[in-house]
């Protein structure tokens, strides 16, 4: 999914856009619908630990929603059942705005996601590069433990193999450590969806293709500045996780 092969899809578009397109997994199995709540903790080189806001993943067969309820923001990825084309809507509830990304726009921005990685928080294929060190159980669900090093980072993943979601991802370098932990899992997606997808007709819908002609719009300026910061952090490797903890 990323340059180092194991990027956490903490912010959907953020990590996907900056990491570029990846190969499709047409042979990947269907995954069960699920809503999951995560929290990220980041420890810097001075041993200061910061806890990020809750991060939600809502996964259905043709839709993946990621959300940070504390920021009142969500990203809704939808895949067309016939064409396989993916569209994205970014929801900014506080500003009552929706940004739409058509399939062509995602391609143009080098932001087409790997659908299966999107719904599994991390690219399941990247687990193959790690060593399976044991098995266990979490609330009656089988867990496989993986360990290894990717791109200079030490990685530990406790993987819910049926749900195809991480229970815990621990990444560390000499300078920092980030731990993503699953807080709750729910096979129902309705309640979480209702909470993060409450778009009303008065929301303004923007086509991301129009951003170039909306440079004086304060909302567009703010989004482009945010994306620019995230691009820098993502290109800086683990820095994206530090951002998640802010």
């Amino acid at each position: 999914m990323s340059k180092n092969g194991l990027s956490l899809l903490l912010f959907g578009i953020i990590t996907s856009i900056v990491n570029g397109p990846v190969t499709a997994h047409d042979d990947a199995p269907d995954v069960p619908s699920m809503s999951a709540r995560y929290r990220l903790e980041v420890t810097d080189e001075e041993c200061r630990t910061r806890q990020g806001p809750e991060w939600w993943l809502i996964r259905e067969s043709s839709r993946v929603v990621t959300a940070i309820p504390a920021l009142d923001q969500a990203e809704v990825w939808t895949r067309d059942a016939d064409t396989g084309e993916v569209t994205l809507e970014r929801l900014f509830h506080a500003q009552r705005r929706v940004i739409e990304y058509t399939p062509g726009e995602l391609r143009t921005r080098n932001a087409e996601p790997d659908w299966h990685a999107l719904g599994s928080v991390l690219d399941p294929d990247s687990l193959k590069t790690l060593e399976a060190t044991g098995t266990g159980e979490w609330r009656g669900r089988p867990v496989t433990m993986y360990r290894g090093t990717i791109g200079g980072e030490r990685i530990e993943v406790d993987w819910l193999s049926v749900e195809r979601l991480p229970l815990r991802v621990d990444r560390s370098t000499r300078r920092s450590r980030s731990v993503l932990t699953l807080l709750a899992l729910d096979p129902s997606t309705q309640r979480a969806s209702d909470e993060v997808q409450r778009v009303t007709p008065l929301y303004i819908r923007l086509d991301s293709a129009d951003f170039g002609d909306m440079e004086s719009d304060p909302f567009v300026q703010a989004v482009e500045a945010l994306d620019g910061r995230n691009r820098r952090w993502a290109h800086g490797g683990g820095h994206v996780h530090a951002h998640a903890a802010h």
Binding site: E105, T108, R109, A209, D210, F211, G212, D213
Partner: peptide
């Protein structure tokens, strides 16, 4: 109309 959009991208 889309020469402009591709350039903006």
């Amino acid at each position: 109309g889309r020469i402009d959009h591709a350039h903006h991208a």
